[in-house]
Amino acid sequence: MIEVKNVNKTFDDGYQVLKNISTVFETGKTNMIIGQSGSGKSVLVKSIIGLHKIDSGRIEYDGRNLAEMRMSDIRLLRREVGMLFQGSALFDSLTVLENVMYPLEMFSDKTPAEMQDRARFCLQHVNLEEKSFGLMPSEISGGMQKRVAIARAIALQPKYLFCDEPNSGLDPKTSLVIDHLIHEITQKFDITTIINSHDMNSVMEIGDNIIFIEKGVKSWQGSKEDIFHVDSQSLNDLVFASELFKQVRRANQ
């Protein structure tokens, strides 16, 4: 569980991007942070990971306060964290298999054979075929890159998984596959997953706990079932602007 308490963040130019945000990201659930572009959701995720230093407040990983940790402790904590980046962020110079083996080689005490087995297991878990293991990231599709990135993120059996726009640049079908993969992994391995997204289709598919950020303020939190009954124009705009709802509307008309 990750707990965020009264977090404030101001940029160097004086713009306050996060305003007194408090929330809880529960274990075994896909926690989704939604909001329009520039609302502060990426800054919130980066602050939780520790890539941004917050002005005030607390960020606790199962009771461990990030602000009180030394850099060496943060490095240790990060070994419990998996991250799926918007652009996959696979290492260009390594093959698919080597990419997944990388965190194992850096931090596990497994033998090379055991590391290979673990990497293969992770890749098979995200439905990648053996023949793609030796390919370079540039030789595989965007959807496959995302899967490799998920496999790399779960290689060290993380307790926390962060996903930054996991469906960006993917077609709707592949997006759905990636969404379900993240959801399945979250439940199967009992991970605290935080997804930063503005894809409402994903939110409605896999969002267990949804946090809506508006101009740096947490303006709503709830489940996907509750989202239709919210008295917030901005959230309604976001929800009904999504392609899925447009299709539903068209079908109803």
Binding site: I49, L51, R75, L76, L77, R78, R79, V81, M83, F85, Q86, G87, A89, L90, F91, D92, Y102, P103, M106, F107, L156, F162
Partner: peptide, 18 residues
């Protein structure tokens, strides 16, 4: 520089790699 802008360095940092 390319590793930086394609978030590969961020990926390493988040893994806990120096």
């Amino acid at each position: 520089g390319t590793m930086r802008i394609t978030e590969q360095i961020d990926a390493m940092e988040i893994m806990g790699v120096n």
